[in-house]
């Protein structure tokens, strides 16, 4: 009777009878009215404080504005991809250490993972921004933001990869070993590729976290979407509108990424 992706929302309530249907209808009308009132109040706020003035919004019709924001967005995407790739590599090594048969490697990986997961991104950024230059490590702004963001994501990536490896059925290893394959090639040719498939949705969610962390790029003065928004703000003297637009862009990109992750999970649940 129940599909694969039945949500709690669909099963929590009985099929409504007459009374319930009437109550839901009344509730819908009242809540819609409240919602409209709230939106109107918000618009009123904008209007009263002069923020609906065309001077705050007109420059969004210019192509140069969008080109400039697009350039910032490109910077954001570049950092996100560099951080994502770095985090994946670091996470991979941490995971390999974590499941290694050498106790020392396991302990070191464990410490690295806890460290990466327990320290805020901003603190990593301050390390590369404030502490690293003190002993002569001079990095371009791009890496000053990419490396710390990657460092703070790596621990999570390692744990996600490990859960993927654990999700591969034991029978796979046994079957491969019984074919006479060596232990290492069993892992890299049989187990790991399957594990990667399992973790694609979680990896996309990790990318969202990385992308959100890149907004700290202003700390190291790197031209990302946030930083370019600041330039627009000083050019047009329009702070609220520009920041709101930037926020909406971030939300939309991350929303799309999350939806892709959800779609893949759903598709797989249906397939299996």
């Amino acid at each position: 009777m129940n599909g694969v992706n039945t949500s709690i929302r669909d099963i929590l309530y009985e099929e409504p009878g007459k009374k319930a249907r009437r109550r839901i209808a009344i509730g819908t009308v009242i809540s819609l009215l409240l919602l409209v009132v709230l939106v109107l109040m918000m618009i009123r706020r904008f209007y009263d404080s002069g923020q609906l003035d065309s001077k705050y919004w007109i420059f969004f019709t210019k192509s140069t504005t969008w080109k400039f924001l697009g350039k910032g967005l490109l910077g954001t995407v570049e950092v996100a991809f560099a951080s994502g790739a770095l985090a994946f590599l670091m996470g991979l090594f941490m995971m390999l250490g974590r499941i290694s048969s050498f106790a020392v490697a396991r302990i070191i990986s464990r410490i690295l993972i806890e460290f990466s997961r327990g320290v805020p991104t901003l603190l990593f950024i301050y390390f590369f921004f404030l502490a690293a230059p003190q002993f002569g490590l001079k990095l371009p702004a791009f890496w000053k933001i990419s490396i710390p963001v990657a460092l703070s994501a790596a621990g999570m990536v390692a744990e996600v990869l490990r859960s993927g490896v654990n999700a591969v059925p034991k029978g796979q290893t046994e079957a491969a070993l019984s074919l006479g394959m060596r232990k290492n090639s069993v892992f890299f040719k049989i187990i790991f590729p399957q594990a990667l498939r399992y973790v694609v949705p979680s990896m996309i969610s990790e990318l969202v976290i990385v992308l959100k962390d890149t907004t700290f790029a202003y700390v190291v003065n790197y031209a990302d979407l946030m930083q370019n928004s600041r330039v627009l703000i000083s050019n047009y003297d329009a702070l609220l509108s520009v920041y709101l637009v930037a926020a909406v862009i971030y939300i939309l990109i991350n929303y799309i990424l999350n939806q892709i992750s959800v779609a893949i999970t759903k598709h797989r649940n249906v397939a299996s």
């Binding site: 009985e14 409504p16 007459k18």
Partner: peptide
């Protein structure tokens, strides 16, 4: 049998 409520 009613449609809903405590009686159901």
């Amino acid at each position: 049998m009613p449609d809903e409520g405590k009686k159901l």
